[in-house]
Design a protein around this nucleic acid. Sequence first.
DNA 1: TCCGAGCGTTGCCTTTTCGGCAACACTGTT
DNA 2: AACAGTGTTGCCGAAAAGGCAACGCTCGGA
Lengths: 252, 252
Amino acid sequence: MTDVSQTTVRPVVVVERALAILDVLADAPQDLGTNEIARRTGITPSSASRMLATLAKGELVRRVPDTGRYRLGLRLVQLANSALSRIDLRDVAHPHLVALMEVTGETATLSVPGEGSAMTLDFVQSSSSVRSVAEIGRPSVPHATAIGKVYLSLGGTLPDGRLTAYTDRTITSRSALSKALVRIRERGWAEAFEEREPGLNAIAAPVLDADQRLVAILGLQGPAWRFDAAAMERAVGPLLDNAAPLSPGSPA
Amino acid sequence: MTDVSQTTVRPVVVVERALAILDVLADAPQDLGTNEIARRTGITPSSASRMLATLAKGELVRRVPDTGRYRLGLRLVQLANSALSRIDLRDVAHPHLVALMEVTGETATLSVPGEGSAMTLDFVQSSSSVRSVAEIGRPSVPHATAIGKVYLSLGGTLPDGRLTAYTDRTITSRSALSKALVRIRERGWAEAFEEREPGLNAIAAPVLDADQRLVAILGLQGPAWRFDAAAMERAVGPLLDNAAPLSPGSPA
DNA sequence: TCCGAGCGTTGCCTTTTCGGCAACACTGTT
DNA sequence: AACAGTGTTGCCGAAAAGGCAACGCTCGGA
């Protein structure tokens, strides 16, 4: 009975007409006048004029003052951002993890910020027989991983006490870490060269919501002999390209 | 008389109510049921139910099967992308040019693809007294500039005949150029080291529309002694960060 | 397990709103 | 100057929407 595809459902005709107007404006390469919209939707110009005025009041369309023509309004962008923020991030992000693994050949991970660290939520394992292993639920060491540094660079908290040296390359100086975080904020991605464990390299980029808050971190990791500096540099573009569509609020 | 704020305008009440439903869903942190939407909008549940069914048919809202609750639908994202693609690109891009110049200190440029090359549409000059000069209307040499290589990497045509050597570093081999273009497509940005003229370095990134077509190119250029490999590398993040919001269709 | 409250939908009828005709003002082109 | 097309709005009849009531369903509490 709740199946809206049943023929007994009585649609609200006025809403259908209003949506037809939005569709026509979306499909048109240029702004459209009232008469043109009326022709394309089959609504008379007087009705179209009134509906356009109401849609303009709600900012779903915008009347261009110079030409008197109409185009879609920016309230739609706000509504779209709200629509996107409701989607389960894992569902949306998974194809990007697949794409990243295919482009780079390395393990792609999705993490979410938590208390004191970021946690792996999903991953797509490298198809290579030599691979770095990810694990759902595993927290990342903030100062010694690319994921962790993205977390710290965007408001994550660093625990008190000494910074543990996991390898020779682990950053253990708080001032050196601060400098690294500034650079990460500037360029929008982080890297780790065998800092968490010998032979493991990684890069990571943030996923932000419409209010610029960190909601997730996209990462790539692999064995240092294969995922070396050159390979990491080549992977930055795909990483950012795959993180950007997940971020309604990409920083400008 | 065409001023819609005049009190004589008769709004379409049904459209106003439908927009109120969208607003309520946008403002809610979670999905909402029919009764809750009715309470928040002041519409009776039967009317709300019918309107939601019609909005769902048009995909502006989505009924979640498991819970029977409603959330904003993904058609809004399509409409929003269309809304954004109508905005005058220069108006939108200019603050990004300013931001890029401020972050990097170098001249930031906006180009659009044309016949056989890309043309500078807007630029923000470096504030440094030693600067590279841009010029609106100037076409870029496709094989010897970062802007031109972005253009070529995404479908631009390379003229017949020999590739002119403007400096020692100009790529004049078509096979070497092809390899460079593959790399540019992979990582999403291009570079030029003193290839168009001695002492001038540049990087560039594409701006794509919702159909993945190249609509513009964002660039940074400066004197090679200052805008060297390290400075260029540091500038890639800001460049991509400023290109991404201009691209409704960032490649996934 | 049963009952009650709340939810969500739909039939039906009344009321309200919308649609569209006609008139008017304006703009651009010939 | 005239004409064609655009865009808006008054007004009224027709159509659609709103809302009441009834029904079915689900969930939580006793």
